[in-house]
Computed example of a mutant assay.
Amino acid sequence: MISMEVSNETRVRGFIFKGLANNQIEGVSFFTFFLLVYVITIVGNSGMVALVCITPHLHTPMYYFLGFLSMVDLCYSSVITPKMLADLVSRIKSISFIGCALQFFFFAALVATESILLSCMSYDRYMAICHPLYYTLIMTEKRCIGLILIASSIGFSQSSLQTVCIFSLRYCGWNHIDHFYCEGPPLLKLSCSDTFSCDLLSMFFFCSFGMASMMIIVTSYLLIASSILRMNSTTGRRKAFSTCSSHLTCVCIFYGTTLFIYLRSPSSSFDKQDKVASLFYTVVIPMMNPLIYSLRNHEAKTAIRQV
């Protein structure tokens, strides 16, 4: 009896996205807009990486991190946006089971890497402002590369475990994902297996790495604010704040949208607000980061003018 049930069970070979547009006119409009956003993302992030590489006076810890942040933004936007653009002008928005697993793996890895990288950048700013005499001794090129490798290793390790857990579940019958890319919560809703272990694993990684990274950032900026307030010089305060404002802006945007999605109740439906928030941090934030750093950073603007 059991064998007959297993043999008659329809296993999912792929998924179909519900997508963003409700009709063809919306699809074309969204396609035009997000294609422009993606082109700006490619140009902005590639340009920032090139700028850091070819400008000698930007070979400092802050810009090493910024260059790698631009690479991460470029990659994780490219994991989502090209497929989303194709789906906006397609009648059937389908993706294979393996394709969905790969998309989830790289996206989860790169988002976690960015989260940890942002905390490394806040630590770098803390050392530069609160301990300037020891900054060059502690934040060496070797240590910066080490922190970048640690962030990448943690990001890809946790993503591997989550991908194996989620895509080892059984998916049978309904295969329509109420989203525009493969993300954990919508996928788990489709599974006909018990998802408790995967939910627990995702929550563990979010709390241990995501919340830990955010606490490092908050602690760093509290210490930075305390140090800035103790400065006697108004010019010194303004310069110290300007070196942190770009990073702080990126952190607020990134964590604001991420927390909105992942701290929602698991039982709540995945509605339009969640899609807008997901769209913001998968497509818009990678475009905004290089613009924020280039427009609000005097050294970056100077380097751009020289080039």
Results as ranks from 00 to 15, higher is better:
Lys142Met: 05
Tyr123Asp: 03
Glu183Met: 11
Arg143Met: 11
Cys172Ala: 15
His131Ile: 09
Leu110Ala: 04
Ile129Val: 12
Ala112Arg: 10
His176Arg: 15
Leu188Lys: 09
Tyr134Ile: 14
Ala108Leu: 13
Tyr171Gln: 08
Gly184Gln: 07
Val164Gln: 12
Leu117Ala: 00
Ile154Ala: 01
Glu183Phe: 04
Phe105Gly: 08
Ile116Glu: 03
Cys172Tyr: 01
Ser160Thr: 12
Phe167Leu: 04
Cys100Leu: 08
Thr113Arg: 06
Ile150Lys: 00
Phe106Ile: 08
Ser122Trp: 06
His179Glu: 12
Ala109Thr: 07
Ser153Asp: 01
Leu133Ala: 14
Ser115Trp: 02
Ile98Val: 15
Cys130Glu: 06
Met127Ile: 14
Tyr135Lys: 00
Pro185Gly: 08
Tyr181Ser: 11
Leu190His: 00
Gly155Ile: 03
Phe180Cys: 00
Thr140Leu: 01
His179Leu: 11
Cys120Gln: 00
Leu102His: 08
Cys120Glu: 06
Cys165Phe: 00
Tyr181Gln: 13
Met127Arg: 12
Asn175Lys: 12
Ser159His: 09
Glu141Leu: 12
Pro186Thr: 06
Val111Ile: 15
Ile129Cys: 04
Thr163Glu: 09
Tyr134Gln: 15
Val111Pro: 03
Leu149Val: 11
Phe180Ile: 08
Cys130Arg: 04
Thr113Asn: 09
Ile138Val: 15
Gln162Val: 04
Arg125Thr: 00
Tyr171Val: 09
Lys142Gln: 10
Leu117Ile: 07
Arg170Met: 11
Gly173Phe: 02
Asp178Pro: 04
Asn175Trp: 02
Phe106Arg: 09
Ile98Glu: 13
Gly155Gln: 05
Asp178Gln: 13
Arg170Asp: 10
Val164Phe: 15
Thr136Tyr: 12
Phe105Ser: 04
Gln103Gly: 13
Asp124Phe: 07
Ser159Gly: 08
Ser160Cys: 13
